[in-house]
Design a protein around this nucleic acid. Structure first.
Length: 527
RNA sequence: CGGGGCGUGGCGCAGCCUGGUAGCGCGCCUGGUUCGGGACCAGGAGGCCGUAGGUUCAAAUCCUAUCGCCCCGACCA
């Protein structure tokens, strides 16, 4: 059975049983119905996505989790490049005074910044090391919670003329926000993200860019993650500190709570003024450029988990799956094993030979042949389901005898999702078609779930009762004031998630105050 | 930062009240039988019980201090 491995792919190098998430044969993960948060933690743990580190609030993203992030990164990066952006990198450390320059931002982030005060330790024999009091920084550095300030400080030198605009830059980076309570992927003290920072010669261009990038996020969320999202502005109470307004994509998780999955901010001239960035326009006048910033983070992985996964484990939509297809050869005796393994490898090769166009047009199919005969077939099936591989191919002696295989699709667990007697000669094409079907099915299932859990409510009584049960997104009239928004969230823990594009714009009266309301907005409890 | 809980082989826990020198399940290693939905048997390796003091002939167990983590709240992507 041993053979020299032909160029291992990323997928193949993912260990099946990472030491820290060992197999627990027979142990089921907690069901969503019995304890949703424990279910989430079980998925993250058992699928080998991440774990809590020894550093408070910071996670270790494990190979399988990171492989998903790489997929997200690659897809988005292509989309950013396609819309004219380039990548750059700015410092992790930001002089404390920069943060203070934009007042709203200073206020918004002050409470959660990590601060570097010294630049040296000294070694104390027998006691380890301690901070060298002699090595105090003249100006303290904060660890970036977001990079607007350092970037706009830099842009000052980059922008002189309208011909330097638009400036369309993105960076992939880590940021730190010192959160009190953390949850793997959803909220951690350090996380990975991308942040786009653009500068434009006019308000119109800036606003266009803000919308364009929201649309990129919507496309990514819906077409790659198969996660339906509502799009639209945040209320003033929910916008990014320092922004004129914030647009968002907002998704519904399986516990009917909302997850802010991405934001695109129109910053106006707030930062260009704060950092004194000016350009000379075509009329020869000095003007402050108009800015945007937009970002998504490793939080998306949390959203991915909570959108599609089930009580069997992780479910990953094909377009983001690190492994698209796992082929499990089976057999009792050595000759049977050899025969089924041979078929499995041939099928794997056929799949790898497919051109990109035949799949989703950008990447070849990733296939793993699971030749681990040490474990029983049942164990292996469960293991791959736990990891969320979209399609599993089973090839046993019975299949070999008739040149066929069994296909199992992850989005339909159990026997119902199995297709028996698929001829090996056409299996590759069938699998590609199946991957596309799964991608589409996951999206429509998620969308149907969201729609079924979105309710119009017309009175305060209806609002509170519906929020209690069945819960979900509430489409309600709101008088447009910050006070009412705060009051509602204080009373119910529900917040305005989004003022959705394409929503009901018939005027009405506010559910709480009875004052006139221009349109319905979306209320929900959120992560 | 308030309230609660927990630190004992890789993971999950028992033992602590009533001190006597550490045990169980899973995982791991070896051998054998298994193998189409989480197999079984036998043998084996692995822990100075978070850390530092104290009480005692003797401390995982009692006392003090300290560190860390988790859960619940107020804040946030």
């Amino acid at each position: 059975m041993n053979q020299s491995r032909a160029s291992p792919t990323i997928a193949e190098s993912i260990p099946r049983h990472p030491r820290s998430a060992q197999r627990m044969a027979g142990e089921k993960i907690t069901s969503r119905a019995s304890d949703y948060s424990q279910w989430y933690l079980d998925i993250v743990n058992r699928a080998g996505l991440a774990e809590n580190s020894s550093v408070r609030g910071c996670m270790v993203i494990k190979p399988h989790g990171y492989a998903i992030w790489e997929r997200i990164h690659d897809a988005l990066d292509r989309m950013f490049k396609d819309t004219g952006h380039v990548n750059a990198y700015f410092p992790l450390f930001i002089p404390k005074s920069y943060l203070a320059k934009e007042e709203q931002m200073a206020e918004g982030f002050a409470k959660e910044c990590a601060v570097v005060t010294h630049y040296r330790l000294k070694s104390i024999p027998g006691k380890g090391v301690e901070v060298d009091p002699e090595a105090k920084l003249e100006e303290e550095l904060i660890v970036r919670p977001t990079s607007e300030t350092i970037i706009w400080h830099t842009y000052k030198n980059w922008i002189q003329s309208y011909r330097d605009l638009p400036l369309l830059i993105n960076q992939w980076a880590n940021v730190v926000r010192w959160e009190m309570r953390t949850r793997l992927f959803l909220r951690t003290a350090e996380f990975l993200w991308q942040e786009g920072h653009t500068a434009h010669a006019s308000k119109e261009e800036g606003e266009e860019e803000t919308k364009r990038m929201l649309e990129v996020y919507r496309t990514f969320a819906e077409e790659w993650m198969a996660m339906p999202v509502l799009c639209g502005p945040k209320s003033d109470g929910q916008k990014f500190p320092g922004a004129e307004y914030t647009l968002c994509i907002e998704a519904m998780m399986q516990d009917k709570k909302a997850l802010q999955a991405g934001t695109s901010h129109y910053l106006g001239q707030n930062f260009s003024k704060a950092f004194d960035v000016k350009f000379q326009n075509q009329q020869g006048q000095q003007e402050h450029p108009y800015a945007t910033s937009w970002g998504v983070s490793t939080r998306l992985i949390g959203g991915l988990i909570m959108t599609h996964s089930d009580d069997q484990g992780l479910v990953v939509p094909p377009r983001l799956a690190p492994i698209h297809v796992v082929i499990c050869p089976m057999g009792k005796e050595l000759p049977e094993r050899e025969a089924s393994t041979k078929c499995a490898r041939e099928l794997a090769q056929q799949l790898k030979n497919l051109t990109r166009e035949e799949f989703f047009g950008y990447e070849p199919i990733t296939v793993k042949v699971d030749e681990d005969f040490h474990n029983s077939p049942g164990f292996r099936f469960n293991e791959w389901e736990l990891k969320g591989v979209p399609v599993r191919v089973e090839i046993g002696p019975k299949d070999v005898a008739q040149n066929a295989c069994v296909l199992a699709r992850r989005d339909i667990p159990g026997k119902e999702g199995k297709q028996m007697g698929v001829p090996l000669s056409t299996a590759a094409d069938t699998i590609v078609a199946l991957l596309k079907t799964i991608q589409a099915n996951l999206f429509s299932k998620a969308k149907a779930f969201r729609d079924a859990n979105t309710h119009e409510v017309n009175s305060w009584d209806e609002f509170t009762k519906t929020l209690e049960a069945p819960g979900g997104f509430l489409l309600a009239h709101w008088d447009g004031t910050r006070e009412t928004e705060d009051k509602i969230s204080e009373l119910t823990k529900a917040t305005i998630r989004c003022i959705p594009y394409g929503g009901d714009t018939t005027p009405g009266v506010c559910v709480l105050t009875g004052k006139p309301s221009a349109r319905r907005v979306v209320f929900a409890k959120s992560y």
